[in-house]
Amino acid sequence: MKTNTLLIRTPEGIVFALPLAGPVTRFFAWLVDIACLGVVSQLLNSAIRMLGWISEDFATALGILLFFVAQIGYGIGCEWLWRGQTLGKRLLRLRVMDAQGLQLQFSQVVIRNLLRAVDGLPMAYLVGGIACLVSQRAQRLGDLAANTIVVRHPQPRQPDLEQLLAGKFNSLRAHPHLEARLRQRVSPAEASAALQALMRRDELEPTARVQLFAELAAHFKSLVEFPPDTVEGIADEQYVRNVADVLFRPRGKTKAPAQP
C-alpha cells in the first residue's frame, strides 16, 4: 500500500518513521535548482566573455564544457557534499536518503542524478513524476535504480499553548494518577487531533464543531474515566481543552490557575 511515511524497523526492534516527499514538493525544489543553475550559467557566461578577448575558440569551448559540467555535476556535487541536499532541497527541507536508512553512497548519488536523463522525458520530469506517484516509496526511476528515497524534514510548528490553554481551571489536574494514565493511553495522533481541533475551532461550522468535540470528548472519556464530580457540567469542548492541557503541558510547566 502507498503511504507518505517510510517505517524502518531496526534489528533492535525500534521503529522510526521517515516522512516521504511527494512529487509536487520535489518539483518545486527542482525549479529552485534550475534557477540556481541559470544564475551559475549567467555568471559563467560573463566570465567566459572576458576570456573571449584572448581566444574566441578557447572561450567558447570552455563555456560548453563548464555548462555541461555544471548541468551534470550540480546535483551530484551538492548531494554528495551536503549529504543528500541541493540548494532547492535545502530550501524546501528535503533530503535524499538511502532507502534502508543507511548512509548515502557516492554511487547512489551519481546514479540517481544520471538517470534524470530518463526521468526528465519527455519534458518537465513527466516520467519521473508519474513514477513518483505510482511508486510505494514515492521514488522516481533514478531513485529506484539507486535505492534512494527523498524525505521531508518539516520544521515542527509550535502551537502557542499559553494562548490556547492557559488561564483556565482544569478539574482533571486534581487527579494526578488519572492524568498520568491519560497521557499513557492517548496516542500521538489522537493528541494531535485534539490540539488541531482546538486551534481550528473558529474555522468550523457551529454544528460540525459541536459534533466534532462531542466525538472527541466521548473518545477521551472512554480511554480514562475521571470521577463524575470532576467532569460534571463541563461542555465537550472544555473537556477536550482540559485533556489537551494535560497532554501538552506537563505539571511543572503550568501556572497554578486560580480556583473559580
Binding site: 521503529v15 548512509q103 515542527p156 499513557q184 500521538p188 501538552f248 506537563p250
Partner: peptide, 28 residues
Amino acid sequence: VTFASEPETRRYLENLVARAYGEIHETR
C-alpha cells in the same frame, strides 16, 4: 513512542536513532 505529550522529544530521538542506525548498520 506512545507518549502523546512529547512529540518533539520523540521526533528528536527518532532523528538520532535514524542517524546512528545509518552509521552502525552500514557495512559498505
